[in-house]
């Protein structure tokens, strides 16, 4: 089943074409890699898909439904999570608060009952805490749950952001460079987490520069260059594709 699909997706910035009629899709249960040289439009594609940037042309479909032009929070609530290239967390909130915030909107929101803490809200909050704790244990940072998120190390930030994306039990997770600037041990850990979660049924769509990670992790790879899709296929096919080699190394 096609979870996420872009049809002729186009994005212009002040006359510059960042994405040019890109067609791609991610099936349920896959780990799809999105690669390409710097400035090829990978992050722009994520931003267009999640509604952070308005698209210029084309459509984005999620689980068969057209989500083009929806607001970021509306898309998020449909079950599409993401992380950012530059880590984004709330440094002045505790780790637990960051986790709870990631799920509360997904549980449905009633303003007054939230303020007055009705039994239903208490129950939801308790469930959310339990789930958060489970995920924190999963990546081994549960001992930090009450520290301010700003006091975490870089690697811990990266993990926190990752599990925040998992918190609402999303249909698909978009990861923007999960292995960037991370030490090899950490990369290994991150990859193990992704593989294990994929086995549990999670779908991933990953931007990554580290080719070893892409080759080992991804079931399928899409290559962008100057906003155009130049190749798509299994990792080993991509590795030997002439267009891709040219895009990366020139001729």
């Amino acid at each position: 089943m096609r979870l996420l699909e872009t049809i002729e997706l186009t994005k212009n910035f002040f006359g510059l074409t960042a994405l040019d009629k890109v067609n791609l899709h991610v099936n349920k249960g896959e780990i799809v890699g999105l690669i390409g040289p710097n400035g090829s439009g990978k992050t722009t594609l994520f931003n267009c898909a999640t509604g952070v940037l308005p698209v210029t042309g084309g459509r984005v479909k999620f689980m068969g439904e057209d989500i083009t032009g929806l607001k970021t929070h509306e898309i998020a609530l449909k079950g599409l999570s993401r992380t950012f290239q530059i880590i984004r967390i709330f440094p002045k909130m505790t780790v637990m608060e960051n986790m709870l915030l990631s799920i509360q909107q997904h549980q449905g929101e009633r303003i007054l009952s939230s303020i007055f803490r009705t039994p239903r809200i208490r129950r939801l909050e308790k469930e959310a805490r339990e789930r958060a704790l489970k995920l924190l244990e999963f990546v081994n940072i549960d001992h930090l749950k009450d520290s301010l998120a700003g006091n975490l190390s870089f690697g811990q930030h990266k993990l926190l952001e990752f599990i925040m994306a998992l918190m609402p039990d999303p249909e698909i997770v978009l990861l923007d460079e999960p292995a960037a600037a991370v030490n090899p041990t950490m990369i290994k850990k991150m990859m193990d987490h992704i593989v294990q979660l994929n086995k549990e049924g999670y779908t991933f769509f990953i931007i990554e520069h580290n080719m070893d990670v892409v080759m080992e992790l991804c079931t399928r790879v899409v290559v962008l260059n100057y906003g155009e899709k130049i190749a798509e296929g299994k990792p080993e096919e991509i590795k030997n594709n002439d267009d891709v080699i040219e895009a990366y190394f020139g001729t």
């Binding site: 952070v52 929070h73 999570s81 984004r88 440094p91 002045k92 915030l101 925040m164």
Partner: peptide, 14 residues
């Protein structure tokens, strides 16, 4: 207040 884009990404209708 802290980060509007991230809040929206987490489903908060700012």
């Amino acid at each position: 207040r802290e980060n509007e884009v991230l809040a929206e990404t987490l489903g908060v209708n700012a």
